[in-house]
Design a protein around this nucleic acid. Structure first.
Length: 821
DNA sequence: CCATGGTTATTCTAGACAGCATGTC
DNA sequence: CTAGAATAACCATGG
């Protein structure tokens, strides 16, 4: 089918496609159109990666918009949201407006009403439904990318429920689901009342094979000799072989998949020795620049290691990298500057990074639940192998598995190359999934009775494929009990209603279990505070009792200040339990301390906890006893509770946050907790979100802890000690600049407006533009830095205990002290 | 005494969505 | 019930 023959699209689009060089539709695309894609027909397309799925989505969305509708494109990853947005924006000149909505990217519901195509993550869509976004019922077309992810234990149910809700809200909704090739795409199609287009067709051939001995055997029967000398390894030989190329002089890039971060990094180090020999003089310079950019992103060992290998034309890629690192690496790989990436599975499901050759080095991965190394799913291996073949560059892509002996070669062929991908199975009947989704279903008015809930659940994939219809009812009853006991829903005869807190929890997008934990912790702290105060004041002291009543501060700032005064978190963390007096102990628990709050949110199921390494058990058990008064809630017993281990992991995570707000250097934190810069960002982001939710809950339940929570949240947000909160709130001022300004005697936003410009300039290391911007944002009228000379600033007469270096050192020292105890 | 090289014991293990209200280095 | 790579620790050898 020719693109010129397409009908039902906005004017100019067929021509535009033609101009892009798309004259003829790929067979699966043509099949989709014939199935009624551009006439609003629902469709499941189960086709390989890079076989033109995006155009299928675009045809559906554009034709829907042409009919006056509005389309939604659901992505599984935030990174993909921006990628897709950029792609769809090329239709803007034809009057198509594109908007994105993810947790961290522009999100106002109103603004999206005017867009024709909206790109969002499944969680964000779910959240928008929960919050009754106005434009939800204007949708005429929804595209779900990577729909096979309904199989995912954690996030699959969200996608499943969200699709069911969208379809219920808009009965005539066109549903287009894009899937990798899976075993039972027909079941998915049945569920969505959609036609099925299934195909193995690829625009670029994919040769799959196994390397063993001195050659790769491919699935088409061909062989390619790739000798491996004695004592050498297979992977570098394969990478070098791809770079040597065939007859053409084009250098082929490689993507190497391994099963751990550490393996990715060490493999990259080895591959760098190979790629180094293939880079040209020009490239060497560009790579050096790229390495410098990488070092600039973060001052950590990970960043440094990455820069080193990048300078030689290789890279590693995993979730410990900062997102800026990842983007740089991905872009440079696409630009053919980086010749080889060694990656964990991040890259298999992430943004588009095609490669001439894909080497799947590890096909097993450690899995604690499984109790050892677990073979990866066929689907997962196929996703990795599907990255082989760069459109327009390669005649075909090569995907290679590695075998050490003839037996495992045969096994790999059997297990992965000849094998079909697994079926997808709904994971909706798991209790954690239903906990959150049933509450949301009740709270947003989709159902108000047990029967109503089951009727709604009947529209999910789970119902479509289960052979145990009882199961869902049983789990539903258990979950409803749980929600009732925790006060999130109320029964009135047959009718179930969400309580006000229940509504809030649903809208905050919290797992009800997280919310329950947070509420328990905060109420526990309130109760203990009252008890301690009573004990201190003596039970009959009426004056202090009435004072206590009057405690909640009407003025937030006053309470805020108060919280700051009460919290004593610097310096005495490790050493001061020599217990000066009881009073200090009392003040410690009077308001929840930051550590207490961090631990509270870290032990919530919404926080992904750090892993305990050898030695950590002792370190954190000790810390657990040292800081016991700060924890909100009963501390599990070291000897009796199985939950103790989890408690310690949460403590480790909470400690990381405490270091972060104690202004401990990034590289120090990564070193101390064995994480990458990306992990710090991730933990901080999650903590920010959960503390924000905790703040809302506290204010709704009228708990004084709001002020302490708000401060703890602000500190996590800026990564600063309490004295810098005011400064760090100024746009353009982060943890580093705030500390420098503070050191120079500029301690508040107000100081910034009054201060000697020379001092400001000096504190900001002579960056005039930065200084001007900061002064302007701080509300200073005369912010110009013209004719200001930083050398006019008086020489450092800074009191040393407030000095940046001193504070930093103290923080770092504190950190290392804890290490050795 | 130390550098080097080889062998054995120990360690360690993927990923990443969400509120709200505005802005990091 | 199940692994395997990287690294640390250890030991032997030779200068």
């Amino acid at each position: 089918m020719r693109t010129a023959d397409l009908t039902g699209l906005p004017t100019g689009i067929p021509e535009a496609l033609h101009d892009e060089g798309i004259e003829e539709l790929y067979p699966p695309q043509a099949e989709a159109v014939e199935a009624g894609l551009t006439d609003g027909e629902s469709l499941v397309a189960a086709v390989p990666t890079a076989s033109g799925k995006t155009l299928i989505a675009e045809l559906a969305m554009l034709s829907s918009v042409a009919r006056g509708g509005k389309a939604l494109y659901i992505v599984p990853l935030r990174a993909l949201a921006s990628e897709k947005k950029a792609e769809f924006e090329r239709w803007e000149e034809y009057g198509i407006d594109v908007g994105v909505s993810t947790g961290n990217y522009e999100s106002t519901g109103e603004w999206l009403s005017s867009r024709d195509i909206i790109v969002a993550t499944s969680e964000k869509v779910d959240s928008l439904v929960r919050n009754n976004a106005a434009w939800m019922d204007q949708l005429t077309c929804v595209v779900s990318d990577e729909v096979h992810l309904v199989d995912d234990r954690n996030r699959g149910p969200t996608l499943e429920v969200t699709l069911a809700k969208l379809r219920r809200l808009n009965p005539n909704l066109q549903t287009v689901a894009l899937s990798a090739t899976v075993g039972n795409a027909d079941v998915v199609a049945d569920w969505l009342d959609a036609k099925l287009v299934q195909s193995d067709w690829r625009p670029i051939d994919l040769k799959m094979g196994v390397h063993y001995g001195n050659a790769i055997s491919f699935d088409d029967g061909s062989q390619r000799e790739v000798p491996v000398g004695r004592g050498e390894r297979q992977t570098p030989a394969l990478v070098a072989d791809a770079l040597d190329g065939d007859d053409d002089d084009d250098q082929g890039s490689s993507l190497v998949f391994v099963n751990s971060r550490r393996n990715a990094e060490s493999a990259a180090r080895r591959m760098a020795d190979v790629t180094e020999q293939y880079i040209t003089g020009d490239e060497r310079g560009e790579l050096a620049e790229l390495a410098a950019e990488i070092r600039d992103i973060s001052d950590t060992e990970t960043s440094e290691d990455l820069a080193k290998v990048v300078a030689k034309g290789a890279a590693f890629h995993h979730a410990g990298l900062a997102s800026e690192h990842r983007t740089l690496v991905e872009d440079a790989f696409r630009d053919r500057l980086i010749k080889c990436i060694c990656a964990t599975p991040t890259l298999a499901a992430g943004v588009n990074t095609p490669s001439r050759r894909v080497v799947v080095r590890d096909w097993q991965r450690y899995d604690g639940d499984y109790g050892g190394m677990k073979p990866l799913d066929v689907l997962e291996i196929h996703q990795m192998m599907g990255r082989a073949g760069r459109p327009g560059l390669d005649p075909y892509g090569e995907a290679v598995l590695l075998a050490k002996d003839a037996d495992s070669r045969d096994e790999l062929f059997e297990r992965y190359i000849w094998a079909d991908a697994e079926d997808v199975h709904s994971k909706l009947a798991a209790e954690p999934a239903l906990r959150t989704h049933l509450l949301a279903t009740i709270a947003s008015g989709f159902a108000h009775t047990r029967e109503g809930l089951l009727e709604f659940l009947d529209q999910t994939l789970y119902a479509a494929q289960t052979d145990d219809p009882e199961r869902l009812g049983q789990v539903t009853d258990r979950v409803l009990d749980y929600l009732e006991i925790n006060g999130f829903v109320e029964f009135e005869g047959d009718s179930i209603q969400a309580t006000p807190v229940g509504h809030t929890v649903s809208r905050l997008y919290l797992d009800p279990m997280s919310a329950a934990e947070i509420i328990d912790g905060l109420e526990w702290s309130a109760k203990h505070r009252t008890e301690k105060l009573r004990a201190l004041a003596g039970e009959t002291d009426e004056e202090s009792a009435s004072e206590r009543e009057a405690e909640p501060e009407p003025d937030p700032t006053a309470g805020f200040q108060k919280a700051s005064e009460m919290v004593s978190d610097d310096g005495d963390g490790d050493g001061s339990d020599d217990g000066d007096d009881e009073l200090e102990f009392e003040t410690d628990i009077t308001y929840p301390t930051p550590l207490g709050l961090y631990h509270l949110v870290c032990r919530t199921p919404d926080m992904y906890q750090l892993y305990l390494k050898s030695g950590d058990r002792e370190t954190y058990t000790e810390l657990c006893y040292e800081r016991e008064p700060e924890f909100l809630g009963r501390v599990p017993s070291e000897y009796e509770d199985v939950a103790f281990e989890d408690w310690l992991s949460a403590l480790k995570t909470a400690r990381l946050l405490e270091d972060w707000v104690g202004e401990v250097d990034e590289d120090r934190i990564t070193e101390r907790y064995g994480v990458g810069p990306g992990d710090i960002r991730g933990k901080v982001e999650t903590a920010e979100w959960l503390l924000g939710a905790a703040e809302r809950l506290a204010s709704e339940l009228d708990l004084e802890a709001v002020y302490a929570v708000r401060e703890a949240k602000k500190r996590v947000e800026y990564g600063v000690r309490e004295e810098l909160l005011d400064l760090a709130g100024v746009r353009g001022v982060g943890r580093k600049r705030a500390r420098r300004l503070f050191e120079a005697g500029i301690e508040t936003r107000a100081d910034l407006r009054e201060a000697d410009k020379a001092v400001v300039l000096k504190a900001l290391r002579g960056r005039r533009k930065t200084a001007e911007k900061i002064l302007e944002k701080a509300g200073r009228q005369d912010y110009s830095m013209e004719n200001v000379d930083e050398s006019d600033a008086p020489d450092d007469a800074v009191p040393d205990d407030a000095g940046f270096e001193t504070a930093k050192e103290r923080a770092n020292q504190q950190a290392s002290l804890g290490d050795f105890e």
